[in-house]
Write a protein that binds this DNA or RNA. Structure first.
Lengths: 213, 213
DNA sequence: CCGCATCCGTTTCGATACTG
DNA sequence: CAGTATCGAAACGGATGCGG
């Protein structure tokens, strides 16, 4: 059964926490930052959360108009969750939390690390040279078991864009897992250890631009 | 007994929530944003939190170096809690949450509203005319029962500064309670309903500058 | 399989009472 | 004033069940 408790405090901070302050709520939002995701995708990004908890949070967040449940067009016949405009406005909150959390120690291994987490870090930390031509990358991330998610990462204009799903065309591709990508961003010289296709130099520039920051 | 559970997730957002994601934790930080406070001051700002919860959170936040427990110099012989540098760096998180929470409905009455909450709102929303001369205000807020807190509010340079405690000298003073001050900021014309001393015009300018925003 | 619902032991919360 | 002790209620976390 969904949680409805409130701080009973008119302060806007407390009102915000009434909606997204329950355990796992902001991490669910994190998983949706890059676009719609199915229930099982969300669960894969939050391996520590039990299924009923995720279902509860999704219901609560939907009731508060932070997320929206939508049926995919045929032939998918599946449901996806996506952020509403209100939910997308939580991005500054997650950015601020992520910035603050960067100074804290990591939990002991083994720890989770979702695709969304790493790509959020990549997008925030990479500073691609604006003079470089735009490039599109296919990033394949093995997320538990033999399941793999495919993401589209684009550079250009000194920015990095991230979207879930297969790119229509890619200059380069890399296949790894979230931990591997994270390690790569911390230590660009390990690029050769990874399964890379296409324009390796473009990928190298992207990865190195994280260090520059 | 303090909580030590972790999301077990290396994402910096999850690491931040490991430390300040427990219930009431960020509201305790809110109460300390303007300076050191005693246990009972914090409790008065969080009337919905039981004493053992507040004690637990304070211990946890101290262990994570978000706050620090310090003995006041004699003859006070009392203890205060204050933010560490790490704790002060949470201000952007609270700002982002407060901004987002502003669009949400208030809880049903009766709701709490601490002095820190209202003054946080005042400081964030007021846009005093930079051309006006600086002014200092004594703000006395009755916070439950017959207890009153005294705060110092200064304008100047187009900014508002807030500190707990008696001002050395004040151009004007107002005595009300947090709800009254909040209502006043929403409806400046009600200033005449309040107990004001000194330069009423300066206080009126401050209050009206919240509307301009 | 995916998307939950149900059950159940454990942890946390919240209210009240109590102590140095 | 500044907490601790206790206890029932709620929330969490893991396992399992089950319809589409």
């Amino acid at each position: 059964m969904p949680t409805t408790r409130s701080y009973g405090d008119a302060c806007t901070i407390a009102r915000a926490l009434d909606v997204v302050g329950e355990r796992w709520a902001l991490l669910v939002v994190r998983e949706l930052l890059f676009g719609p995701r199915r229930f099982s995708d969300i669960r894969r990004g939050l391996p520590g959360a039990s299924s009923n908890l995720v279902a509860d949070r999704l219901r609560e967040l939907e009731a508060r108009e932070v997320i929206h449940r939508r049926r995919l067009p045929p032939p998918a016949a599946s449901w996806v969750y996506e952020l509403t405009p209100r939910g997308r406005r939580l991005e500054p909150v997650l950015d601020a939390l992520g910035e603050w959390g960067g100074e804290l120690p990591r939990p002991p291994e083994p720890f989770a690390l979702s695709a969304a987490s790493v790509l959020l870090y990549l997008r925030g930390a990479a500073r691609p040279d604006p003079a470089e031509p735009p490039a599109t990358f296919r990033v394949e991330l093995r997320t538990g078991g033999d399941v793999a998610e495919v993401w589209t990462v684009r550079t250009g204009d000194g920015r990095v864009q991230v979207e879930p799903g297969e790119p229509p065309r890619a200059d380069a591709g890399i296949s790894t897992d979230p931990h591997g990508l994270n390690d790569l961003l911390a230590e660009p010289s390990t690029l050769d250890d990874h399964d890379v296709t296409g324009d390796r130099a473009a990928l190298r520039r992207l990865v190195r631009s994280v260090q520059a920051a």
